[in-house]
Design a protein around this nucleic acid. Sequence first.
RNA 1: GGAAACGUGGCCGAGCUGGCUGAAGGCGGCACCCUGCUAAGGUGUUAUACGGGGUAACCUGUAUCCAGGGUUCGAAUCCCUGCGUUUCCGCCA
Length: 421
Amino acid sequence: MLDIRLIRENPEKINELLKRRAPHWTIDEVLKVDEQRRECQIKADELKSNRKNISQQIGMMKKNGEDTTAIQEQVRLQGEEIKALDEKQAELDELQRNLLLNIPNTPDETTPLGFDDSQNIEIKRWGEPAHPDFEQKAHWDIVTEKDIVDFERGVKLSQSRFSLYRGKGAQLERAIVNFFLDVHTNQHGYEEIMPPVLVNSNSMRGTGQLPKFAEDMYKCENEDLYLIPTAEVPVTNIYSGEILSENELPKYMTAYTPCFRREAGSAGKDTRGLIRQHQFNKVELVKLCTPETSVEEHEKLTRNAETVLEMLGLPYRRVALCAGDIGFSAKKCYDLEVWMPSYNAYKEISSCSNFGDYQARRANIRYRSNETGKVNYVHTLNGSGLAVGRTFAAILENFQQADGSVIIPEVLHKYLGWGVL
RNA sequence: GGAAACGUGGCCGAGCUGGCUGAAGGCGGCACCCUGCUAAGGUGUUAUACGGGGUAACCUGUAUCCAGGGUUCGAAUCCCUGCGUUUCCGCCA
């Protein structure tokens, strides 16, 4: 969430930045509540201070055997006033917190202006999409022909947008996971994490999924547990509520997990194939770092994700998302989009975001500065490295041959023991 | 899932027949001093949040002894609920 003091001191600036996302965002209400809240606290603190002093006096008097009934009665009446003020303050505290939790992060100054994806800016392209003289098949046809992904039985087992990999399909999916993890741990210096895939609401609030996006997630009945929509949630929250030493930063962590999304509101979108499933695999990259280094770390993280695409030989482009298109908690975001012949377009395969201190404030992740000894919020970052199912689909489509076979990228062979599908 | 015990600051550990305890003592950390080096020793310091005042260094109020409620003039200390840990039993990949 945003810093209330920053809001108090620069209301116009914050409002202006928020309105870059969408015109309706505003901090006006939270400012009003903040003022009432502080007023309330001043009064309550004063009364409590008074009560504390008198209570100590009563202790003394009792020790001396003096009669204290009159003075006790007097303080008791004050106590009721304090209680009322405390309740009001708690109410205002919560109201303010809820308001803040529902306000998105302010876009970074370098985030392009614009309210929808048409205003996103392409930063770079890598690789050449192949345009062979045979007709390229879509991955959903390839996998069905080769019987390596079973969509129909997935639906039978669960519901639409669930599928099952089998045989060489399951092997390929697993090989991609291993490849990603090996590159990020061995070459990019990330620590591998295997986190819980069910987390509580506090964790979901920490990274920004709650309270605003509850309907996007699967929740356990009668339990305060949600299936994670991304490993970002458990991994970022590992250090929630903690104060790290600056020496421990930056933290580089990577995790493979299945991810679960209800995809409410995407009816009719990407209904075929592996692009938009309720359950999918992803290898995530997460960083915690100091504020001074987060811009640089964001570029490096994005490069880490690009590197695996390049090692696989998949053509992609990098897009800087505009203010209206970046995620709720992000201040800056690059999408990596891989070339997908079936769409005849680039399709998102990774989203690399810098959250500044927005998530750190929610999750209360701080560090102590070596220089000043002061405590401050870390910056958090994450990006897909990469979405596994989409990588699987991209490999099949981009590397299919005229004879119907698919030549698997060299780097995966050692995980598979075979190279042609 | 059943039973019992427990949950104090970075850590260990007092306090728990309610008041002067943000919290003894120790360890660790930091700063300074001392001994030629090492080892040892001395002195001081050592939390966070939200407020108020000040350009600032800083001063100051309130809250915080797992969390949330309650009793009381006053709670780390008493009561209730929840969460967690440990041990025993049951179950289990």
